[in-house]
Amino acid sequence: MHLTGLHHVAIIAADYARSRDFYHRILGLPILAEHWRAERQSWKLDLAIPGGGQLELFSFPSPPPRPTRPEACGLRHLAFACADVAACRQNLLAEGVAAEDIRVDEYTGARFFFCADPDGLPLEFYQPRD
């Protein structure tokens, strides 16, 4: 087996329009495709992630809540690489998105911070060291 990369991450949104606005307008991810799937009463939105990956955003009627306890088993967070974490953080704050303070990774020296998407999913913005 030879894996060549990460193709996509899929997220189910409680409020499709709000999450679509967050990922497309606020984070600036370009729309690749958007489809209404009538048989599932569900939207499917494909967004491009710089570097070649994709984010799939779904809506489903009455999705069950996900456990929110700290360190719950499962996907911990989604991390986006960025060139300037301070600028990314300021842009999010200007849009009314609460963002944690910038921290420095004790092992790599890279700068990063966390915020949450409209459904409370943790997102990390990570600036790799040059």
Rank of each mutant, 00 (worst) to 15 (best):
D84Q: 13
Y16G: 00
D117N: 13
Q127H: 10
D130A: 14
Y23Q: 00
P63E: 07
E56C: 03
R20H: 15
A72D: 07
L93T: 12
D84P: 08
E39R: 15
L75I: 15
P70H: 14
A110M: 11
T68S: 12
C88R: 07
H7C: 06
A33H: 01
A87G: 03
K44M: 03
L57V: 13
P30S: 12
G120T: 10
L121M: 11
D46L: 15
A72F: 07
L57Q: 06
E95L: 03
L55P: 00
C73N: 10
Q90H: 08
L32R: 10
G53Y: 00
A48I: 05
A48R: 14
E34H: 09
D130T: 07
P70V: 09
G109W: 10
D15F: 05
A116F: 07
L47H: 03
A10R: 01
C115Q: 03
L123G: 08
R111L: 14
A99D: 05
Y107Q: 13
R103E: 11
V85Q: 09
L6M: 15
L55A: 01
T68I: 03
L92P: 09
G74P: 04
A99T: 02
G53E: 06
C82A: 04
L92R: 08
L93G: 11
Q127P: 02
L29S: 02
C73D: 13
P67Q: 13
L123A: 04
H35V: 03
D15W: 06
L29D: 03
